[in-house]
Design a protein around this nucleic acid. Structure first.
Lengths: 133, 133
DNA sequence: TCCTTTCGAGTACAAATGTACTCAATTCAT
DNA sequence: ATGAATTGAGTACATTTGTACTCGAAAGGA
């Protein structure tokens, strides 16, 4: 089991997202990959990278003079933890009200509803399969 | 339309949750209502209340020597904004992957699946009703 | 070779956040 | 009435976060 690492801030999350996208790269490449609409300074990216490494979210290996970074934690893992944290914070850990809010508070296209249907049906299927065993 | 107020921190959120629960009350009562497992100091609650008022999340009215506070923003509103922020941050605004993660990353009881079904069916119903008009 | 660009490493610093103390006024129980 | 508890108001302070600058080494182009 991994240690539980410190949580990350919004800015750090953005940099991590960029790194997940490019899989690996130096600060320059990460900088390129960060959502441009954020208009994040190179130095700022640099700082976040440093902090992320300190927090154990990514590892680096030297290659010549520069450093290649790589995420040390999979996206799904971080996302899961963030969701858990969020559901606990806002709904005392009860995820259904969360889903309800999610779908209630925005307009959803028919396609999305169908996708939702599919997701839930799959769940139900799995559950029935399990019951049958 | 309301101004967009500053966002609130975890601690502030907890105090706001407490206030939503008791509807209204002085700092003492809010303090009592805060999730005890957080073990939040009276003074800390006091500070959060002050900051929440400054941020426009709650209003107060004097009653004698003490002050009665009341939430100025409905829970649903705050929750919606928080969810939006979260979905944007983690899923670039795309809520389906969010739901998928939500249901994938935990064990869900049959009852909960049925509830989910109900929620989604209701959605579908609404959508069809709308189409019919 | 000399200039420009690129990095890493370190430092800076204000705002936000978590957490708490002080003090003065007041209220309450004995 | 007097000491204890409560409350509002203000202050304190370390940590985290957002944002950025400096400096020096290396690398690459002219």
């Amino acid at each position: 089991m991994e240690e539980k690492r410190p949580s990350i801030s919004r800015g750090e999350t953005e940099v991590l997202k960029a790194l997940w996208q490019i899989e690996q790269g130096g600060v320059g490449e990460i900088y390129e990959a960060v959502d441009p609409s954020l208009d994040m300074d190179y130095s700022t990216v640099q700082t976040y990278v440093r902090r992320l490494e300190a927090k154990g979210y990514l590892t680096s290996q030297r290659r010549g003079r520069s450093k290649i970074y790589e995420a040390a934690i999979r996206r799904a893992q971080v996302v899961r933890e963030a969701i858990d944290e969020f559901v606990h914070r806002m709904f005392d850990g009860d995820f259904l009200p969360m889903v309800k809010h999610l779908v209630d508070s925005r307009e959803i296209s028919s396609d999305e509803i169908d996708d939702l249907m599919r997701i839930v049906n799959e769940l139900k299927q799995d559950q029935e399969d399990k019951d049958a065993s």
